[in-house]
Amino acid sequence: MGAVAVDERLRRRCTEAVVEEGERFGVLVQEVEAGLTAAPDLQAPVPWVPDWTIRDLVGHLGAVHRWATAIVRAGTTDRPAAPPRPPDGGLLDWYAAGLADLVHALRDTPPDAPAWHMSPAAEKTVGSWVRRQAHELAVHRMDLEVAAGRPVTAVDPELAEDGADEVLGVVVPRWAHVEPVASATAAVVVRSTDTDRVWTVRVRRGEVEVHEGDAGAADARLEAPAGQLLRRLWGRPAEVAVTGDPAAEALLRGR
């Protein structure tokens, strides 16, 4: 499978999702800080990411937004500087400013402009970052809802399907050189039961191949609606059906 491209319609939908998910995240953080949720304050833990508090989650996203903005605007595939550190104070204003700047950068920069990417399987273009930021926000927005004691808002099935596709085709190959993928040999079929998308992922000692459709014989199978697949593949609790070797299916989890 070659570098994963992002078509124009999907790029526009992902840009909209960055705005929608980013604003929803920011409003919920404001409600946490105002004492309007079950979370007492920004120091409340994030159950789906046990090492983080809500403050850590906001700081992470704000830093990633600025990092992605710099990558998009650089006009080069050279490796960027590290993400910035969050400020000690004014965290919500800092988050909002970073989100606004990111949206401007994604809208104003041609999607085929060159841009560094951490995965060897991704197109080294701005379009890949539009996609990456949409799914980054969707997953972390769900993290925040759980931390705040709110019901988890479902991700649009089309976007969730693309998020699953990104994990399988871009994220897993990024980790091909590290364990457990580096020494594993397995085939896993993944099916989105509400969108009818099917992938076969083959891992061969550090090489990852992703093909459309069900290739037949597989060491494991993972089936669920697209939104649940997105959660499972990013290591979040999800209602999925797994058959076959659990260790093979676990190879597909995003770090």
Rank of each mutant, 00 (worst) to 15 (best):
D196M: 09
A164S: 10
E123F: 06
R141L: 13
A184Q: 01
P120G: 11
V155W: 01
D156K: 03
S119E: 06
D196E: 15
V190E: 06
D112A: 09
R141P: 00
V126Q: 08
A184M: 00
Q133G: 05
V172D: 09
R132D: 12
E123H: 14
M118H: 10
A154D: 14
D156E: 15
K124V: 07
A121F: 05
E136G: 06
H117F: 14
V172M: 09
T153D: 09
S119Y: 06
D194P: 06
P180Q: 12
H135C: 00
A113M: 09
P157N: 06
Q133D: 10
D162W: 09
A134G: 03
V198G: 05
A115I: 07
R174D: 06
S183R: 11
M142S: 14
L159H: 00
V155D: 08
W116I: 12
E166I: 04
T200F: 00
A176C: 08
A154G: 13
L168A: 04
E166L: 05
V181K: 10
A160H: 02
R132H: 08
V167M: 10
G149E: 10
T195E: 01
A187G: 12
V203W: 01
A184D: 00
T200K: 02
V201H: 12
Q133K: 04
K124H: 11
V181F: 11
V190H: 11
A138Q: 09
T195M: 00
P151K: 12
P151R: 07
V201Q: 10
D165Y: 11
A187C: 03
A122N: 07
W199A: 01
V201A: 10
E158D: 14
A184N: 02
A148Y: 12
A113V: 07
T185H: 04
A187N: 02
T193I: 03
S192Q: 09
A186M: 04
T195V: 08
G169T: 15
V146L: 05
A147V: 05
W129P: 02
G163V: 03
R174G: 11
M142W: 15
T195D: 01
E145P: 03
A187R: 15
E179F: 02
W129Q: 07
A164W: 01
H135D: 07
R191Y: 12
T125V: 15
V190Q: 05
R191L: 12
R150K: 15
D156F: 00
D194L: 06
P111G: 00
A113L: 05
V178K: 11
T195F: 00
H135I: 12
S119T: 14
P180H: 10
P120M: 10
S192E: 12
V181R: 15
R174V: 01
A138K: 01
D196P: 03
H177A: 14
V139I: 15
M142P: 01
V152L: 08
D194G: 05
